[in-house]
Design a protein around this nucleic acid. Sequence first.
DNA 1: CTGACGCATGGTG
DNA 2: CCACCATGCGTCA
Length: 888
Amino acid sequence: MSHSTSSNVCFNPDCAESKSERPRNGWRLRTGEYVELCDRCCSAFEEGRYCDIFHINAFGWKCCESCGKRVHCGCIVSAHAFTLLDATGIECIACTRKNGMLVSNHAWSPSLFYHAPLHERFKDISIKNWNHLAGSGPVPWRQAASLFHSPSSQPELHPRMPYEVDRLNAGDRLSASSLEQRKVDDFSERFRNGSLKLGAQDVPENGKAGTNHEEQLSSSITLSHQSSSLRDDSSTPQFGVHLPCSSPKDTNGHIGASGIHLQATPPPPLAKQFHGNLHNGVDSTGETQSRNGRPRADGRGRSQLLSRYWPRFTDQELQQISGNTNAIITPLFEKMLSASDAGRIGRLVLPKKCAEAYFPPISQPEGLPLKVQDSKGKEWIFQFRFWPNNNSRMYVLEGVTPCIQNMQLQAGDIVTFSRLEPEGKLIMGFRKASTAAPADQDSETSKTGNGVPMLGDVSITKTIVEFADPSTWSKVDKSGYIAKEALGAKSSIPRKRKSSTLGSKSKRLQIENEDLIELKLTWEEAQGLLRPPLNHSPSVIVIEGFEFEEYEDAPVLGRPTIFATNDAGEKVQWVQCEDCSKWRRLPGNAVLPSKWTCSDNTDPERSCSAVQELTTDQLGNLLPPCNLATSKKMKAAKQEPDNIKALEGLDTLANLAILGEGGESPASSQATTKHPRHRPGCSCIVCIQPPSGKGPKHKQTCTCNVCQTVKRRFRTLMLRREKKQSQREAETTRKKQQESNLPLPEKSCDDDILPCNNTASSSSEQKKVVSDGSDDDPNKTKPSTSPFKGQIDLNIQPEREEELSPDSDSCSMMRLLQDATERYLKQRLSSSSCDKTAAGNQTTPGGGGEGTGEKASNSVTPDSHQEVDKDRSVPSSTKAPASALSTA
DNA sequence: CTGACGCATGGTG
DNA sequence: CCACCATGCGTCA
């Protein structure tokens, strides 16, 4: 960052006196340094007048929600001077302190988006939650009711600032506080004047208010803050989206910041529209409580919405929903239609928390009729009701079938609920899972990978829902929908298929945002596997926010090791021998090939026959749990200890690359019902594929970052392989003879065991290349028997193995990648001296990943699979595993 | 007999 | 162990 330290120039570009004799420290830069200001500017800064003086015309001024004082929120200078409120707007630091909310803003930290009113919240927020914010998409806001819970009662918070988060994630690192200040005042006023007068709300339909003592109590406690920090929960729709006139038709070309105005919207709680107290935390359903034994608000307050219900609207969707109105859309939640939901029964099960948070409180199982209107002006009536279920409730919308059919929704499609401001109508949007695929697989997946919605794959319709005035809709036909213009309702589009379990499956398949943590870690782990080729320095590319080292020359896929410090304080690393599985100590700076054996160790006393230098206990202490697991796995696969780890690393890398491609990530790495052991980051053939396998998500022509990266790397590997093949063959013949006589021959590397130590290491590696040739044998691709058993990790799901028979198309991108990479690594190790020359060729891949890939794969695995593999570009091969899945 | 309704059950996290 | 929720299933019109 620009820092004026050395020049005595006042950091303030607007400073009249650019020179300062005695520069003084001003605010802290993002780098951690402090800017240096002239006396005058510094004084202004210290007195809190800096922005008043120099930023008076700048963007980002807001008024404190409490005292009305104007605060500049658009710069770092005043970052400390205000606190972002949970609902919207800001509070000056004085008011914050006065209110006991010692939360500071930090412009670059996630706290920008999460302003817990109390420290407990920070304390309770796990890092993973932050990752939701920082690394993924929208995070749901809290429900209103929870506002009135004591903070400590809501350890988990998912403050919802959807669009800020989205946009920020998209690189639009605006300060939330700088977002659309224009209407803040209006909303703030509304906020204060009406929406938040929760306690004064009318009582819902049953007229029983305040039966929830807990909430009422906390309500009274926090009331003074309801317009400020504690609004996090109640402000569900903290940020509406202001949609200036834009017809739905031009939305496609008119998305983005220019088309949608982010708006700090202290959205009127539903309670206001819905007779009052839905969100005021005053549970009006005492009757029901007694019936069902569980206070409604309890669930609301205590837990956040599951991530799968977080609305993940795209700008496009929002615009479509908004239509040509000036409506402000406030996303509430979304739900993937289950088979039951989309079934003929016409009952849409609502997530309980969502229902309780965003729908009107109902005390009777009969519930309330909801008026529904879609974008065409059709209106529907849904019956919002619940069933007692155990001691809880199951909320459903009844009579949705016509609407769903009208929208041609199926299981797996997503319905989204938003609120349309200022009318307060709820908007029920729809998102087709996919235009082509049976909707069950990837719609949510595509969005949950990293929270970046997939713009191209959505088709939105909208339905505006409002709660029918009971007086008007006294008793609506239960099955009934239709009200005024539901003409299309009965034009039920024939259901394209019977309901299936796919919807629910896919829901379960979807990644939870928490998993992104794991994902990120796995990214890091994957990256950690890569080491730059000797004499090559990587360039860094960023894919979906993650930095990757990109190598012109393919990186070395280094064998994972465990770093430790020995007694002497020296850094060492432990590596496991491929052959004997014993752990050996190596210098900390050693770069290991993906296959490392004791023979690579120059110390003859540490050959495979030597005793392991680590006791099991020591190893256990050394290994992180995951490595232990891997270690076990290694042993399990001991008979074929082929680079399993490296493969896993590559697997993971490719898998995560797919995942990281937010828009088109297949349903990879998601814990599945079928594969409960599979977790995000799981690289098995199952997890990296879309669940239903209907069509590749990444087409051959896909030019997404991931595909390009994968293709590029693949091409590199393949080209390199080709180039060296002849050489390898020659050497192979020669080395075969050697290896027959010299099991682990003349390895004479030093302890560093650098792959460049070539002739020697190549000889041993060459041996492996020979054996690798076996994977050209189609039979060897069978996971259960192949030496490459580890390349397709089914997480040891025996039943899966059959599906992964050589004929099952299970080999696809991953396999190709693995093969290619394995080969590359081996070749590289065997002939690293050629790397540089080969590197020059990688940029001449003769036409696209496909052609190259095909060519490469043909040469790599000239077996029957080639017919399958070559039809797919590297990143697009999803069909095969999908079929495996579908047979599951 | 069929479909709607409402509750029960069981899987999943 | 519990909450949630998808779905099964019994009952009834």
